[in-house]
Amino acid sequence: MRPDVAEYQVMVAPNGARRQKSDHPALPMTAPELAQVARACQQLGVSGFHLHVRDGSGRHSLDAGRYREAMSAVAEAAPGLAIQITTESAGIYTPQEQLSCLAELRPTAASVSVREMAQDPQEAARAYALCDEAGTQVQHILYSPKCIAQLQAWYDSGLVPTQMRDAIFVLGKYVPPVAAAPDDLLPFLKVAESMQLNWSLCAFGRQEQACLLAAIQAGGNTRIGFENNIETPQGDLLADNAASVAGLIKAASVAGHELRKG
């Protein structure tokens, strides 16, 4: 492989915790809709599925039963696709409730917010110990360089097992709305330079694709989908999550990068 060619993987985040059908009619809310997105995106080469579930009112949920229903539907529709649940609070759940979700599901993979867990270090310690015992692949959600510093402190203290090196950098945010830009990645890379993280990137706003291309060039993986952005780089509505994924893969190919599947 040429030294200027980067290999990368894609995870799709098809709905998130906040957007509704009123934001985009193709936003998946139910288990069958999530399964349909999983199948379409797997066919494009996506290797991971970042799963949020909703309650009967469309509200973000950490309900284990709803997770099991959705995980089963996705696994049936897209065999072999890696499924990652989230324990994101979205301003609703406490660290204790996030731990309860992990304890009940004992999932293969989960994303866990360092900033949210830092609200209760004792519960954080229990959550990471549980994941270590259960073999859950933890992806640390890092919203800022401050979160990276907190994660390093937890490695140093032993609160987080040193082998848990998966992380996702988050550029931009929902509330208040802040759109990401590619240069926003640089402070994350500087602070995390010596940590040997297996990192991915997600980015809010219509520069999502440009941010993800910068991540690929820097040696990271990518997470894309309607959780973070529903617009093309030109500001038009994307047709669906598959269109978002296809656009990134095409742009990365034009830039000379190679998609790594599975």
Rank of each mutant, 00 (worst) to 15 (best):
residue 183 D to G: 05
residue 109 A to H: 07
residue 104 E to M: 01
residue 130 L to P: 08
residue 243 A to W: 00
residue 189 L to N: 00
residue 81 L to F: 06
residue 216 I to P: 09
residue 114 V to N: 02
residue 259 L to A: 14
residue 215 A to M: 04
residue 55 D to T: 13
residue 71 M to R: 01
residue 221 N to G: 12
residue 241 N to Y: 02
residue 3 P to C: 07
residue 89 S to N: 15
residue 252 A to E: 12
residue 57 S to K: 13
residue 244 S to R: 07
residue 247 G to P: 01
residue 219 G to S: 09
residue 216 I to R: 02
residue 18 R to V: 15
residue 64 A to H: 02
residue 205 G to R: 08
residue 89 S to I: 10
residue 64 A to D: 05
residue 214 A to F: 03
residue 157 S to N: 10
residue 261 K to H: 06
residue 155 Y to F: 13
residue 50 H to S: 15
residue 163 Q to R: 14
residue 106 R to G: 07
residue 23 D to M: 06
residue 189 L to V: 04
residue 30 T to D: 06
residue 138 V to M: 03
residue 146 K to H: 10
residue 212 L to M: 08
residue 74 V to R: 00
residue 164 M to L: 11
residue 193 E to T: 07
residue 146 K to S: 12
residue 119 Q to A: 15
residue 138 V to D: 04
residue 198 N to S: 10
residue 202 C to Y: 00
residue 229 N to E: 08
residue 145 P to W: 01
residue 43 Q to K: 11
residue 242 A to C: 06
residue 60 H to F: 04
residue 9 Q to R: 15
residue 111 S to H: 00
residue 93 Y to N: 07
residue 44 L to W: 01
residue 117 M to G: 08
residue 90 A to S: 15
residue 240 D to T: 01
residue 103 A to G: 04
residue 212 L to Q: 04
residue 74 V to P: 02
residue 139 Q to P: 02
residue 55 D to P: 14
residue 100 S to L: 08
residue 156 D to R: 11
residue 169 F to K: 00
residue 34 L to S: 10
residue 14 P to M: 06
residue 176 P to K: 08
residue 245 V to M: 02
residue 94 T to H: 07
residue 50 H to E: 13
residue 220 G to D: 01
residue 208 E to W: 00
residue 213 L to C: 13
residue 184 D to E: 10
residue 78 A to W: 00
residue 105 L to T: 07
residue 178 V to C: 07
residue 225 G to Y: 04
residue 190 K to L: 09
residue 239 A to S: 13
residue 17 A to F: 04
residue 26 A to K: 09
residue 4 D to H: 11
residue 246 A to H: 03
residue 250 K to R: 13
residue 142 L to I: 13
residue 151 L to W: 00
residue 175 V to K: 12
residue 56 G to T: 12
residue 223 R to G: 04
residue 50 H to V: 12
residue 84 Q to V: 12
residue 257 H to T: 10
residue 147 C to V: 01
residue 26 A to P: 01
residue 57 S to R: 14
residue 21 K to R: 13
residue 224 I to E: 05
residue 88 E to D: 15
residue 215 A to V: 09
residue 91 G to C: 12
residue 246 A to V: 01
residue 195 M to S: 07
residue 113 S to W: 05
residue 65 G to Q: 07
residue 233 P to S: 03
residue 109 A to T: 06
residue 216 I to H: 01
residue 226 F to C: 15
residue 219 G to E: 09
residue 1 M to N: 06
residue 145 P to G: 05
residue 86 T to Y: 08
residue 129 A to I: 01
residue 33 E to Q: 14
residue 134 A to L: 11
residue 176 P to A: 11
residue 165 R to V: 13
residue 20 Q to T: 15
residue 24 H to N: 09
residue 148 I to W: 05
residue 197 L to R: 06
residue 262 G to M: 06
residue 41 C to P: 03
residue 113 S to Y: 06
residue 116 E to R: 02
residue 168 I to S: 10
residue 120 D to A: 13
residue 2 R to S: 14
residue 187 P to K: 02
residue 148 I to H: 03
residue 132 D to Y: 06
residue 80 G to M: 04
residue 150 Q to T: 15
residue 218 A to R: 03
residue 33 E to M: 09
residue 58 G to L: 09
residue 193 E to Q: 13
residue 124 A to F: 05
residue 61 S to V: 11
residue 47 S to C: 10
residue 109 A to F: 03
residue 70 A to H: 03
residue 79 P to H: 02
residue 97 E to N: 04
residue 10 V to W: 07
residue 88 E to F: 08
residue 116 E to V: 09
residue 218 A to N: 05
residue 101 C to E: 00
residue 96 Q to K: 10
residue 169 F to M: 01
